[in-house]
Design a protein around this nucleic acid. Structure first.
Lengths: 108, 108
DNA sequence: ATATTATGTAACTTTTAGGTTACAAACTTA
DNA sequence: TAAGTTTGTAACCTAAAAGTTACATAATAT
């Protein structure tokens, strides 16, 4: 794994990475304890951690030889922005429908 | 492209597919007019459309030989649910901090 | 009927994400 | 100092996503 530079959407596309993020809603864990919960090897998890950190989904606090991972708000923001954008689309569509119905009312 | 069955996160991981969704916030287009806006071949776009439809991000209305694509709310819901879940995490973290500060206040 | 337009799909190739093992580095403990 | 932990990384392999071209199908237009 040559740690590719992925955009935030590609980062959360991987189920294992989403599992890691899910896990970090419970507590902060070091990389070893995270990899223990997964089928794959520790280096594989290590790469995922690196990708998550680079994309801003987690931050890492080094305590001695242990690297503790915690959720980082930053990475999620672009996703939320994207979803909000489409929510606006649905809302404006709904408003247009309401306008249409109101016009009909005044006409009849 | 053997039209793989991707989960919603994998579906929006592809930049071209996100561009298509973005395009459909402006208007409803048939597949040919969508592919005209892209560098890649028409069959490639056609596959993306299929993937977007299968995952519930767009719906297709067939008018004669033309297939008109429009945004479908369904596909976005799982993404929003996922984002909301993490928003709850940040909110509860904030509440805990507030509680902590309030306790300090009453102690001092 | 023929030509044109819009689309789907099969077969194939290329690229790369995601996994592995092996080894190095850095910190901790006995 | 030596042994044990925790982590990073290099080198490699595999599976599959994403593209291509070529061809088939179906609706429309002339």
């Amino acid at each position: 794994m040559a740690t590719p530079n992925l955009d935030v959407f590609q980062v959360i596309a991987d189920p294992s990475r989403r599992q890691i993020l899910q896990m970090l809603t419970k507590d902060s864990y070091n990389i070893n304890s995270i990899s223990e919960k997964f089928e794959m090897s520790r280096p594989a998890v290590s790469k995922h951690i690196k990708i998550l950190q680079t994309a801003g989904f987690i931050s890492i606090q080094i305590v001695g030889r242990e690297h503790y991972c915690a959720l980082n708000k930053k990475g999620f923001e672009e996703i939320r922005k994207w979803i909000n954008h489409f929510d606006q689309f649905w809302n404006s569509k709904l408003k247009n429908l309401e306008k249409l119905l109101n016009n009909k009312k005044t006409i009849n």
